[in-house]
Amino acid sequence: MSDHYSERDLQREITELETKSATAARLFDIRRIIGGLFVLYGVIVTIAGFAASDADIDKAEGVNINLWTGLGMLVLGLLFLLWLKLRPTAPPPPDVLPDEREDSGTG
């Protein structure tokens, strides 16, 4: 048991890494990406729905599936953007961004 590894060592190691972690401060908000992509897809597919040929509609059992799917995706995208606007990302506390040069780990 020379290099015994206990829960206390692990707690210390992870707590130390957590203070240096940059994810909370620097990772962007995924709601913006989901909202943007679904608005774009929604617009594209809705336009395809307006331009649907009779053959397209016949293939989809008489449903203008592009129109309905496109509108659904558009609404979902807008909801994500609305959520982001109503509950914006919390700004990181100022002390979470330490200096770039820190000592190197556990050693």
Binding site: I14, E18, S21, T23, A24, L37
Partner: peptide
């Protein structure tokens, strides 16, 4: 478009990786 967005997420997330905890566990912060 999807492939562009997927790669974009990769590039945008890169600046959040500073420690091994960020790389392997997203800094326990999601």
């Amino acid at each position: 478009i999807y492939f562009v967005v997927v790669l974009g997420i990769g590039f945008a997330a890169r600046r959040s990786v500073k420690t091994s905890l960020d790389f392997f566990l997203s800094g326990r912060s999601l």
